[in-house]
Nucleic acid binder design. Structure first.
Lengths: 229, 229
DNA sequence: ATAGTTTTCGCCTTCCAGTTGAAAACTGAC
DNA sequence: GTCAGTTTTCAACTGGAAGGCGAAAACTAT
């Protein structure tokens, strides 16, 4: 009976150069040497998986720049790592746009829509992370983790477009976020670019904890009308 | 360095007697002997976690009656099981109402809103399962896993009410599910009860695979207008 | 001034959730 | 057979939020 190990892995996503990118490092050792893989490592004996992934990520990026970390899923196919029995807890991590954390030599950002050859099942994990991000952008305020502390609506529109993979309307985005009470004007404006134009107002996110907007009110009681806890 | 083990656990939920209940068994051995705990067991060396939980559940309930199984999260606090280092992959399982699977002697159903003393962190897992179910009832067709193959709108309303914890409108429920194309009339009707009333039409769910209804169209393009994959 | 650019705002349309009330289809009692 | 009671079903209305469009605002450059 082979030894069962537990590793933690994170798909750290950031919008850079107008596209959604993921932090990968090039494996030096076999198996899958030379391929790109997710940062992570073995779960320690006295830490939970979230503590562990934050600790391991600290070797790759400045963890203070990680605006959000959440569990994705367990990946546990018996031979996902050839020759070993390793179960992985996968995480989604988000770094706000604009930051450019220093990363080690062997580590780099890659477009999620044009991944290089990845090690093991890491591509599936990245895609799962992207899907989670896309869903949550719609019904939570997760955008705060993708955006810099202060931003214009146009900039936010481009972040959302890059993350979602399709153009979004700036008008609509602003109205929707505003109605949910997530958007706060700072009062400042950004001077227009060299080609002119009206100066853009600057906004910030009102809440930085995760807020979910109930997807459908479909089945909600009109007033307090609970029938059981 | 203590040995790291991996277990799989499932909160199997069913609506019975008009309330959401969970399948628990009474632990015989220390630690936490006498407390109620979730079915599950050790992850085998040549199975993934989903295969494993289905295998382990087969000892408690007829797995053919499990209409849905999905990963919940990893529970990995260092001392969640005293004296051992055990990481748990937690699952949500659903059994359609109406079925009454045979269960072993030491196993029984318990109301989720009135749990007995549970072992370890199993109460947290059950509550997480309930929350997942409640969310997904709103924006997926997960109801199919809670409902019998054929049902009346009133019966479905009571299932939803029990699972969600508040009364829902039958009118609304029917319209919403119908618009999403999830509800199919069978053509049959159920004869009314002893106190009379119009006979209720019978319906079934159109799709049994999981379908998600995009929570918010907020940021969706009007037509195909993709900007990148 | 004028043309061009970018942001912002208001108005309009459409769609869907939620409410209400009445009609339909049965039972049992008189 | 009719009438009252019960339960299901349907149709109409209301309110709110998303999405689209175009005009107005606020700049730069010529």
């Amino acid at each position: 009976m082979s030894q069962l190990a537990h590793e933690v892995l994170a798909a750290v996503l950031q919008v850079r150069e107008n596209s959604l990118q993921v932090l990968l490092w090039r494996r030096g050792r076999e198996p899958d040497a030379g391929r790109w893989s997710l940062p992570g490592g073995s779960l320690g004996t006295s830490e939970d998986v979230e503590t562990s992934i934050r600790r391991q990520l600290a070797e790759k990026v400045d963890v203070r720049q990680l605006a959000h970390v959440e569990q994705l899923a367990v990946f546990s196919a018996p031979h996902r790592v050839p020759g070993l029995r390793v179960v992985a807890s996968a995480f989604l991590g988000l770094v706000p746009a604009g930051l450019d954390p220093e990363v080690p030599e062997d580590t780099d950002w890659h477009r999620v829509d044009a991944l290089p050859e990845t090690a093991f099942d890491h591509e599936a994990i990245v895609l799962r992370a992207r899907n989670r991000l896309r869903s949550k952008l719609s019904y939570t305020n997760l955008g705060f983790a993708l955006a810099p502390p202060v931003f214009t609506i146009s900039a936010l529109r481009e972040l959302y477009s890059a993350a979602l993979g399709y153009r979004v309307s700036a008008t609509n985005l602003q109205r929707v976020l505003a109605r949910r009470g997530l958007l706060e004007p700072t009062g400042d404006t950004l001077p227009p670019g060299p080609s002119g134009g009206r100066p853009a107002a600057l906004f910030c996110f009102a809440e930085h904890g995760m807020q979910v907007t109930d997807p459908f009110a479909v089945l909600r009681p009109p007033s307090a009308d609970r029938v059981s806890s």
